[in-house]
Computed example of a mutant assay.
Amino acid sequence: MKALTIAGVGPGDPSLLTLAAVEAIQESTVVSYPVSTREGDSLAEKIASKWITKDKKKLPLHFPMVDDQNTLKSAWRVAGNELMKMVEKGERVVFLAQGDISLFSTGSYLLKELEKYHPKCIVNLIPGVTSFSAAAAISRLPLAFQEEQLLVLPVPGSYEELKVILSDAPHKKKVVVLLKLGKKWQWVKPLLEELDLIKKAIFAERIGSSDQQILRASDLSSGKRPYFSLLLIRQSWPLTMP
């Protein structure tokens, strides 16, 4: 049966690749990965570069960061077809995706594209470490205890929407993870200050890379932040603790 593998390579630190992901890369003859601009660099490829030996063929696939549905669908279709060409030739193909393949991942769209238009192809999935779980480990902040809830979402589009979420969180024992902070930090910081949460939030950006930052949000200046930045917000702790 024809098959290919979609593997998560974690947030940035090569040592966080799973053994399964490393094995899939080593056994492949073609390593594919997403690029946001044609001829551009791929963070997923960079993370896994240690295991992408010179004997392997590389297949960068263009996934533009746009909102236009037709452009996105066209990119998915082209990517699926390019991968299937390799599979049809008998190549052992692995597609690399940053972070985990099932969470805000290019790999998820690719999976659905292949299931719809190439249903006879078996797709093997290898999960990866998420940026927020890595950030939580580095900052020594447990994400959830016992009956607590964990809410993971991109930063909402408005001040009021996020205010409702954060105000509701302590009543439901909910720890909040806000992804894709970026330029929204300019209005998120004042909101955290208004709700007296600025000292309870952990900021992280470029997790696993040589220039990563992890610090309390209260120590972070105002202004835009990189796209790959996030906040961990724990407002309370369980009554029973060591």
Results as ranks from 00 to 15, higher is better:
Lys174Leu: 12
Met84Asp: 11
Lys180Val: 10
Phe203Glu: 08
Val66Ala: 13
Ala134Asn: 07
Thr240Pro: 00
Thr106Pro: 03
Leu114Met: 15
Thr53Lys: 15
Ala44Tyr: 06
Lys46His: 12
Glu160Arg: 15
Ser222Leu: 13
Lys58Val: 00
Asp100His: 06
Met86Arg: 13
Glu82Asn: 14
Val30Met: 00
Leu43Arg: 12
Lys56His: 04
Leu114Asp: 08
Ser209Pro: 01
Trp237Pro: 00
Ala21Trp: 01
Ala20His: 12
Lys85Arg: 13
Ile52Tyr: 10
Leu151Ile: 02
Tyr227Pro: 06
Trp76Lys: 08
Asp219Ala: 14
Leu43Met: 14
Tyr227Cys: 06
Lys50Gly: 11
Leu59Ile: 02
Ser218Pro: 04
Ala3Ile: 00
His171Lys: 15
Ala21Lys: 02
Ala204Met: 10
Ser105Pro: 07
Lys50Leu: 11
Thr130Gly: 00
Lys2Ser: 11
Trp76Ile: 04
Pro154Glu: 07
Glu147Arg: 11
His118Ala: 13
Glu27Ile: 00
Lys120Trp: 06
Gly8Cys: 02
Pro226Ser: 10
Asp211Val: 13
Lys224Trp: 04
Val30Phe: 00
Ser229Arg: 07
Ser108Ile: 07
Gln69Trp: 13
Leu19Arg: 12
Pro156Asp: 02
Met86Pro: 00
Leu83Gln: 02
Leu19Met: 12
Cys121Met: 11
Glu147Asp: 15
Lys200Arg: 14
Ala79Tyr: 09
Ile138Gly: 01
Glu205Arg: 06
Leu153Ser: 15
Thr240Lys: 13
Gln69Glu: 15
Val129Met: 12
Lys46Tyr: 06
Gln149Asp: 03
Asp67Phe: 15
Leu197Gln: 05
Ile165Thr: 14
Ile207Ala: 10
Glu82Thr: 08
Leu197Phe: 13
Lys54Ala: 15
Val175Thr: 15
Lys85Thr: 09
Leu141Pro: 01
His171Thr: 13
Val30Leu: 01
Lys199Leu: 05
Thr106Asp: 02
Gly10Ala: 05
Leu197Val: 05
Ala79Met: 10
Ala204Glu: 07
Gln235Pro: 04
Gln186Phe: 03
Ser158Tyr: 03
Lys184Ser: 14
Phe203Arg: 09
Ser74Val: 03
Thr240Gly: 01
Ala79Lys: 08
Val129His: 01
Pro156Glu: 03
Ile126Ala: 05
Ala3Pro: 00
Ser102His: 10
Ser133Trp: 03
Lys58Ala: 01
Leu166His: 04
Leu231Phe: 08
Ala169Gln: 09
Leu166Val: 04
Leu239Ile: 11
Val87Gly: 11
Phe63Thr: 09
Val152Arg: 04
Lys2Met: 11
Pro170Ile: 12
Glu161Leu: 09
Leu16Ala: 01
Leu230Lys: 06
Thr106Asn: 11
Ala136Gln: 07
Lys199Tyr: 08
Thr71Val: 13
Ile25Lys: 02
Lys57Gln: 15
His118Leu: 04
Asp219Gln: 14
Ile122Leu: 11
Leu125Pro: 00
Ser139Met: 02
Met65Tyr: 10
Leu61Gln: 05
Leu16Cys: 00
Asp55Gly: 09
Ser210Ile: 13
Ala137Leu: 11
